[in-house]
Design a protein around this nucleic acid. Structure first.
Lengths: 195, 195
DNA sequence: CAGATGACAGATATTGAAATCTGTCATCTG
DNA sequence: CAGATGACAGATTTCAATATCTGTCATCTG
């Protein structure tokens, strides 16, 4: 039993992830989390003001894992911006597809959480389009991309590729032609971006 | 009372639309439809083998209304293909946005029906991308578009603009910046299409 | 006295019995 | 006899009683 360890926000978040994995988003309760930790539910409320706040914290944790993976590509400043852009989207698509394919139930659980926490998702999307903006700006500086406003273009790129990263399309990521579709859309928008 | 009129598939479909409008997708029953028509539910089953078949027929009817509006733009063969392409998407977006905005409940109802009838939706999307393919092909023939395969490019265009016609994004169609977003995406893909 | 507890009120979810619905078909009617 | 009917069996939904959960807080403990 780990009941003697100090109760931290981190331990509560880990337990919450486990409870969500086991019970799903509808049946995961604060009482379950407390039970899993061997404490009373009142103690959980000492670290998170509401159940919603707890779920939001778990959601942000999950979203930030993706952001971290991609930031590496952004900072490879000596590579061709078009390559980086293509690889950034490939990596995003691959990461999403792997998560959705490996454990569909957990992915569905986090999709529900994302739906509940529009604000956290908004911040996440802002961070992703921020990364994109950096690559676009690098391309413009290098003279290989044309655009009046890198930030607007970055958002347009993100919207145009939604089919390959928005969780609502997850069921279609397993279909056979999907890679060709990805190539076709990427080819189109990259062509539209070139100087 | 219209009880003396002959019971036709058409009249049943109209009654079904009305029942769906009133009760929503979850509570609309075959018995309700029969009641609305003043007949027994057995009579409805004479025209539609199952409730699912009835709902699919209503769904197709609804989807075909959109397709009809757009086909006019496709056949304006003396206009610049890029203008037609832009106008086709504008019309699609405007039609969807109007439907979603004017009667959100009814739109939600038909979104549920669409989700139930993947096959009918698939045929509808095939028809829409078919219309797009015609415009793209006209552009290639006129020498203003470049592409190896008009059909693939048409699907890429459709996917890239999903944010502005896929019903899952309906809640965002009322947000202030949406027209600018539409312009940004259209500008990007049209630029990628030009010869 | 910082941190944990569990009793509590009001909100939400579960459950199982009763009501309704779906789809069939033998029968009726014009 | 073509077309409508409504009784019926099995599936699904509704509803109200019951249980559980959320969030608070006075109390306890090391």
């Amino acid at each position: 039993m780990a009941t003697t360890e100090t109760l931290t926000a981190e331990r509560i978040l880990e337990a919450t992830e486990e409870v969500l994995r086991r019970h799903g988003p509808a049946k995961a309760t604060v009482v379950d989390v407390a039970r899993a930790l061997g404490v009373s539910h009142g103690s959980v409320y000492r670290h998170f003001r509401t159940k919603a706040a707890l779920r939001e914290a778990v959601t942000m944790r999950w979203l930030d894992r993706t952001t971290g993976t991609l930031s590496g590509i952004v900072t490879e400043e000596d590579r061709d911006p078009e390559d980086r852009l293509r690889e950034w989207f490939s990596a995003l698509f691959a990461a999403k597809r792997r998560k959705a394919g490996d454990d569909p139930e957990l992915f569905a659980t986090y999709s529900v959480l994302a739906g509940e926490n529009g604000e956290a998702v908004g911040r996440h999307l802002a961070e992703l389009t921020g990364q994109l903006t950096e690559i676009v700006r690098a391309g413009v500086d290098a003279g290989v991309f044309t655009t009046t406003d890198p930030a607007t273009t970055a958002r347009a790129l993100f919207h145009a590729t939604g089919r390959f990263h928005d969780p609502v399309y997850a069921p279609e990521w397993e279909q056979p032609g999907i890679d060709a579709e990805f190539e076709a859309v990427m080819g189109l928008v990259l062509r539209g971006l070139r100087a």
